[in-house]
Amino acid sequence: MNFETELALGNFYIPECGKCMKVVWPPSEFCNHCFGEVLLKKKIFEGKIIEFSRKDDEYFCLVEFEKEVRVMVKTPNIPKIGQIVKILRCGISNGNYFFHVI
C-alpha cells in the first residue's frame, strides 16, 4: 500500500514505521528515525481543530489527527478550537493533497 495511492482513492492512513512504529509525517517511503519501511496500518477518521481562519465563505483549519499528524483542511461549518471533526472527503487534486472535514 502506498500513502498517495490510497489518498487518491479517498483513504487517509497514518504512515507508520514498520520497524520502530514511529508515525512518519509528512509521509515518506522510509522512517525519518530508523529508515525502516513505512507502512499504512490505521485509517484516520477523526481529528481535533488546533486553529482556523476563513477565506471568502470557506473555513480552513489546522487539524491534528492521532496527536501527531497535522494537516490543513477545509470545513463548511464554523469551526471551534478543540472541536472534534470527521474526514468527509480527501484525495489528491492537481498534485495537491486535500482534506475536507465536518
Binding site: S53, L62, V73, F99
Partner: peptide
Amino acid sequence: LEWDNSRGEYKHPIFWASIFTKSYKR
C-alpha cells in the same frame, strides 16, 4: 513550497500567515 503537502490545498503563504495571525491575536 510544493513539497509541503501537509498544507493540503492551502500552499500559498497567506494561509500559514492567517493561522499564525489568528493564533497570535487569540
